[in-house]
């Protein structure tokens, strides 16, 4: 893939929901929402497109846990954030065989959120001790949980306010 547009076109074929966002406001270029079942096809597409995996992270919302993947490209500026909701049994397929770097990221996400990555070669605790598997430190308590709307921007995207008032 040579440019952001060809990337978006390829994604729309899977199909996944792609939204272009303003880099100056968000710090990345594309926001993608996926089903767990589309994850591996999506990762395979990125592998052929010269993308690398930046991180795998989790997010505990009132609607359940979501796993976020951030990829970026070495060749042209295209940083994308993909959000995947976990399946009913709190699991998601692994992409550690497609992107070997995901191996440790997924172990860390399991440590913090308890998300199982199906078919992962070695899902033992990475940062926590072996006997702390049930701790799941980043899961939130009931009263602090928000849903997607609670953590999304409400007003339309605008340019950041300049710090110094420009004199004429």
């Amino acid at each position: 893939m040579e440019s952001k547009d060809s990337v978006i076109a390829a994604f729309k074929k899977i199909p996944v929901t792609v939204e272009e966002v303003q880099f100056a406001q968000r710090g990345y270029h594309l926001e993608i929402t996926l089903e767990a079942g589309q994850l591996r096809a999506f990762a395979e597409l990125l592998r052929t497109g010269n993308f690398y995996l930046s991180f795998v992270s989790g997010l505990h919302l009132a609607t359940g846990i979501e796993v976020s993947y951030q990829f970026a490209n070495y060749g042209f500026p295209c940083r994308l954030l993909a959000n995947v909701g976990v399946d009913a049994d709190n699991s998601v397929p692994t992409i550690a065989d497609i992107f070997q770097g995901a191996n440790w990221h997924e172990r860390e996400t399991k440590d913090f959120y308890g998300v199982i990555f199906r078919d992962h070669p070695n899902l033992k605790p990475l940062l926590l001790a072996e006997d702390m598997e049930d701790l799941k430190p980043l899961l939130k308590k009931e009263k602090t949980l928000k849903d997607r709307a609670g953590i999304s921007r409400t007003e339309p995207e605008a340019q950041p306010t300049p710090a110094v008032k420009e004199d004429a």
Partner: peptide
Amino acid sequence: LPAGDACYTVESPRGELVYHLIGDG
């Protein structure tokens, strides 16, 4: 800080450092 998320990427001496921040107001 408003609700929403933002990413900021810097080049540390060891490589790419990304902060991904999600705020809820």
